[in-house]
């Protein structure tokens, strides 16, 4: 494992149609891949970035699964152990927006979960916008999600997106108002960590 210094580890999962720029978004944020991408051989890529929230170090691990288009929707087991879910569409491509309800079908049924949900309209650098900002906003509001428009290309709002997620998850973690996915794990040295997935490591 990567033994670096962090207080919280948060796992973020990216969902959305092919070509909406999920991977670019994360690469932009992490400034290249770390560790080097395995998307083409494992089918899943993850990127890690440690950020400072207040005085704490927070490690964000962002997971990006290739070939999601084969799913009609993402089922709940997919993000059962995730802390945040980013649903991405392309503001210049209506079909990617039209698919959102499909992606959300399962997520809605899993409404009891406190997994943090964020809707992202990507590619605002494009001039052929098809989805007005307000339409995205309304959709997000209806489904109780955060909303943000970004441009991975121009780096607009990318940093803000992930920082917002880190801050929010940290707030949740502090108040212990956490989704208790995999709680009660006994750690190797026998200590029980109630929020194991947040891995309160203080090495």
């Amino acid at each position: 494992m990567i033994m670096d210094d962090y207080k919280f580890l948060f796992k973020v999962v990216l969902v959305g149609n092919a070509g909406v720029g999920k991977t670019c978004l994360v690469r932009r944020f992490t400034q290249g891949l770390f560790p080097p991408g395995q998307g083409a051989t494992i089918g899943v890529d993850f990127m890690i970035k440690t950020v400072d929230v207040g005085s704490e170090k927070v490690k964000l691990q962002i997971w990006d699964t290739a070939g999601q288009e084969r799913f009609r929707s993402i089922t709940q087991s997919y993000y059962r152990s995730a802390h945040a879910l980013i649903l991405v569409y392309d503001i210049s491509c209506q079909p990617t927006f039209d698919c959102l309800p499909d992606w959300l079908r399962e997520i809605e049924e899993y409404a009891s979960s406190k997994v943090l949900r964020v809707l992202v309209g990507n590619k605002i650098d494009r001039e052929d916008r098809e989805i007005p900002t307000v339409v995205g906003e309304e959709f997000a509001e209806r489904h109780n999600m955060y909303f943000l428009e970004t441009s991975a290309k121009e780096s607009d709002n990318v940093e803000r997106l992930f920082m917002q997620i880190a801050e929010d998850l940290m707030k949740q973690a502090r108040s212990r108002d956490l989704p208790r996915y995999d709680s009660n794990t006994t750690t190797i040295d026998g200590k029980t960590s109630t929020i194991s997935d947040f891995s309160c490591c203080s090495k």
Binding site: M1, K11, V44, F46, Y79, H83, T187, S196
Partner: peptide, 27 residues
């Protein structure tokens, strides 16, 4: 990859598994 939050089925050679901090993997 053992940290992945999504479901997985992974064969981990024992020697690799020794190297892993179980507490990080979660349940």
């Amino acid at each position: 990859y053992l940290l992945a939050p999504m479901p997985f089925l992974i064969g981990v050679p024992e020697e690799v598994f020794h190297n892993v901090r179980r507490s990080e993997i979660g349940d």
